[in-house]
Amino acid sequence: MDRKRRIILTVLIAMVVIAILLYLSTWLILNFSYIQENIDNPMMQRAIINIIKRKIPQVIALVVVSILTASSSLVFQTITNNRILTPGILGFDAIYMVVHTFLLALLGTSIFVTNPYLNFLLVTILMVSISVLMYVAILRKNKNNIIFLLLFGMILSTFARSITNFVQVLMHPDDFTALLGRTSVSIVNINTSLVYVSLPLMVLVIILFARKHHTYDVMALGENYSTNLGVTYNRESMLGLIYISVAVAISTALVGPLSFLGLIAANIARELFKSSSHIKNMIYASLFAILFLVFGQVIIEIINYKTTVTTIVEVIGGLYLIYLIVKENRR
């Protein structure tokens, strides 16, 4: 790594740390003078501690989501051999919502729905099977046709959204209320009950990705080369896809769909560091994703929740995707 990139990396890490600190203390900074006046009041002291206590799981959730989204997008791009598609764009998080809704509509209030851990497990298993099925049926055959896949992903997302709403309209009001608590998660309304469960899962997924990072480096060369170099291409693709599905399931369960975050983080990391090593790219992309989410959330809090990070990510990601498509067309 040359000097320039080392500087960028240092700045990036510093900014991430600052963003996290800012996120934890936005409220304190915004109301600084008021707090200073009342600092001796025990009520105020308790309030400060409570707010920081509430913010810590949120920040962990944001970090977990960022790392998972960034790494899964990178691996997905290697498996599908392109730089435009990410699981979010292909509608994986929409599939998560469909599975969740259907489960609730069909099973009602059985143990698989009421117990959040069991429910999460079941939804993840179903989602893994659906995405593997999708890979076999569509992704593998049309691998060279990114544009077709993009369009397909968009239709899939529309379809998933319609069918989710549809089932929600049809279902019993009690079930609907239960579902709303589970699926209306967003960055502002993080599902903090799952945060500590998701931590070990995230570590597991990251270890699985990291263990295979040399394999992915080889797979980036293409199917023929990697077969020659002794990588069982189909098996590794399938395994990678299973890990990705788990990653998407965790992050969607925590903060809901974030279609373009992975795309932005993965591509900016590649552009800035120009590295082709997966493990390095994963670290860079994760840092960018954390910066984007946490810093974005700080800004949203400063402007008093006038809009949401999801919407901002959508605008920037949409513009970026248009740029990438035009570039792809030129080639």
Partner: peptide
């Protein structure tokens, strides 16, 4: 822009629409 592949146009169009949709959301917020 003159696209080579015919699917490019609807793809760009859907992105364009999504962008307008996001702006609409921001204004509504």
């Amino acid at each position: 822009i003159k696209f080579k592949n015919i699917i490019f146009v609807p793809l760009m169009g859907m992105m364009y629409g999504a962008l307008i949709g996001a702006i609409t959301t921001i204004i509504a917020q």
